[in-house]
């Protein structure tokens, strides 16, 4: 009796999934989007991409369908999402952030995989595979360290706060250290391995640090408010991208992720039009302008006048 019940349930589930699968793939162009988490930056990258592609499809008189999947910032959700995406046999896969990009590229060699918001594509092994293209959101790390010097002129020691298991962050921290060495600034790593450690680690950053730098780290982006809340010494908090400002970050010099998404869409357009994509165009760096974002609270805390803010904006070329 129990066995029969189980069989009925499994059969129903299978039937339902088949119906859903068949129901999709009705448009002229079908795109599977796999996004790592629900952060502003990644949302903007998705938005920029889909808007540009939709406009193009309309011009061409074609219908386009986007299947959106979100891994909710959990590593174990990525593989099933990628599998489902591939099973739908889309015209192309748009993978936003490293975990999704690497998994998708590793699981298909014929469906075109377009990545974005990956800091170090070469290091992740995404370069050299025939069906893989994309844009890197490599942080202007050196410029961000210079920004710290502009905001905190006496800076002598910077604390790097990041998740030790995110390769994006490790690479960026390495670059930051190089820049700091050039500028004769001391540094120390404060690496976290799980979200429940963040509060205590931040609390342990002593007053002798003049600034905290957080690269474009997914776990820290999710918990930026925790960082701000635990930052009882009010140490200036410079972050990797603009989405982290709303949650409590002080300042950043950031890539515009919407533009990055649109830039990636251009590659997609070439592929969908059957045009050749040259080697140089396959893997691109961000070509757009950088945005200087400083929160109002930060301006007060740092004692910045509006003239100083304007000067900074001119320096970093708005």
């Amino acid at each position: 009796m129990k066995k029969l019940f189980a069989i009925v349930i499994v059969a129903t589930l299978l039937a339902v999934s088949i119906v859903i699968l068949v129901g999709c793939n009705q448009a002229d162009i079908n795109v599977e989007i796999i996004q790592f988490g629900n952060f502003d930056a990644l949302n903007s990258a998705a938005e920029g991409f889909t808007q540009r592609l939709e406009d193009w499809a309309n011009e061409q008189g074609k219908t386009i369908h986007f299947e959106e999947r979100n891994a909710n910032a959990t590593a174990s959700n990525v593989a099933p999402s990628v599998q489902s995406a591939i099973a739908n046999q889309p015209d192309l896969i748009y993978a936003i952030a490293t975990p999704c990009a690497v998994n998708a590229a590793g699981n298909t060699t014929d469906i075109p995989v377009l990545y974005t918001a990956v800091t170090n594509p070469t290091g992740e092994g995404l370069v050299g595979q025939d069906n893989v293209y994309g844009t890197s959101d490599m942080n202007p790390v050196a410029l961000q360290i210079e920004l710290i010097k502009d905001l905190v002129p006496n800076v002598k020691k910077i604390a790097f706060l990041f998740c030790s298991s995110e390769t994006n962050s490790v690479v960026q921290v390495g670059m930051a250290k190089v820049q700091c060495a050039l500028m004769k600034i001391d540094t120390k790593d404060f690496a976290v391995s799980s979200a429940s450690e963040i509060a205590q680690v931040v609390a342990s950053i002593g007053e002798d640090f003049d600034a905290i730098y957080i690269p474009t780290d997914n776990m820290l982006a999710n918990s930026i408010s925790t960082v701000a809340s635990a930052n009882t010494h009010n140490i200036p908090l410079i972050v990797g991208e603009a989405g982290m400002i709303a949650g409590g970050g002080w300042a950043t010099l950031s890539i515009n992720y919407k533009l990055l998404g649109a830039q990636t869409a251009e590659i997609a357009i070439k592929l969908l039009s059957g045009q050749q994509v040259s080697d140089a165009e396959r893997h691109q760096m961000y070509k757009g302008a950088l945005e200087l974002v400083i929160s109002e609270d930060a301006k007060t805390a740092l004692g910045l006048t509006s003239e100083q803010v304007t000067a900074l904006q001119q320096k970093y070329g708005e």
Binding site: N72, A73, S196, M219, N222, S223, T226, G248
Partner: peptide
């Protein structure tokens, strides 16, 4: 309330702790 933040992974490892 202490962290001024709630995340989906805030309880990771809670049972071990």
């Amino acid at each position: 309330q202490k962290d001024s933040n709630a995340t989906v992974d805030m309880a990771s490892g809670a049972i071990v702790i």
